[in-house]
């Protein structure tokens, strides 16, 4: 498994339509470079949709997405996603994480319990394990959602605007966690509108406009000399729709 080191996402001839209206259209896209990849684009361009398709939450109308050469399936996979508006079960913070570790047993072993506690400690929720998840603040919810995705050690982590509604301190806290995880061989693809955040974190950027990939490339080049007029407008804060 050579691909273990740099997981690959390969998209070929992909189309997603809703009621006959195409929302995403990608002829070919390969994400295989090390480091974090950021997906940029105006609202409604199809960024979140792209992540959901990679995760297997949505199914393409036609075309294929392969992760490390294997087609995406909704049954198994090594990818996890942090949703834009994280949802919480009517369970405690602890149970919200524990859910993802259960495989065959309903009750977790001691090792797994420790793992959950360590993860909660890491995201700064160590003192809230018995609190109902629904009572957490916005930032805490994002942290919990992130912890839930990380606990199963995904090879690919998809993050959808994790810090859009969060204060600067928490934002940098979450960024640190993402960065650490990326250094530990997890391929991270994330969506953001925060251009500075993209610069801080990512090594590779993809620009989506009206359901099409209009530009991709190394972050520094991407921001300095954008090729596509859409990218140029977007970065200049001009493009709205």
């Amino acid at each position: 498994m050579i691909n273990n080191i740099h997981p690959t996402v390969e998209i070929e001839n992909l189309n997603f339509s809703y009621k006959g209206k195409p929302l995403l259209n990608i002829d070919y896209l390969k994400i295989d470079k090390p480091g974090i990849t950021v997906v940029l684009g105006p609202n409604g361009a199809g960024k979140s949709l792209l992540l959901k398709l990679i995760q297997g939450i949505e199914k393409p109308t036609f075309g294929q997405i392969r992760l490390n050469g294997m087609p995406v399936s909704d049954k198994e996979g090594h990818q996890c996603m942090v949703l834009q508006t994280p949802t919480f079960l009517r369970l405690s913070v602890y149970q919200n994480i524990a859910v993802c570790l259960r495989r065959d047993n309903f009750f977790l072993g001691q090792d797994q319990k420790n793992e959950v506690l360590a993860m909660l400690e890491k995201v700064g929720l160590g003192d809230k394990i018995n609190l109902p998840a629904r009572l957490l603040s916005g930032g805490e919810k994002q942290k919990l959602s992130l912890a839930r995705a990380l606990i199963s050690r995904p090879k690919i982590l998809l993050v959808d605007e994790p810090t859009s509604t969060i204060d600067p301190a928490t934002t940098s806290f979450i960024e640190d966690i993402i960065k650490t995880r990326a250094e530990n061989d997890t391929k991270i693809i994330f969506v953001t509108h925060d251009i500075h955040q993209a610069l801080r974190l990512a090594r590779h950027a993809i620009m989506i406009y009206k359901g099409n990939v209009v530009e991709e490339g190394d972050v520094e080049r991407f921001f300095k000399t954008p090729n596509s007029p859409h990218t140029r407008d977007y970065l200049a804060g001009k493009l709205l729709r």
């Binding site: 198994e76 949802t87 079960l89 995705a149």
Partner: peptide, 10 residues
């Protein structure tokens, strides 16, 4: 919860 479960694979 449909999306949640698909997002973390339970």
């Amino acid at each position: 919860y449909r999306e949640l479960f698909l997002s973390v694979r339970v």
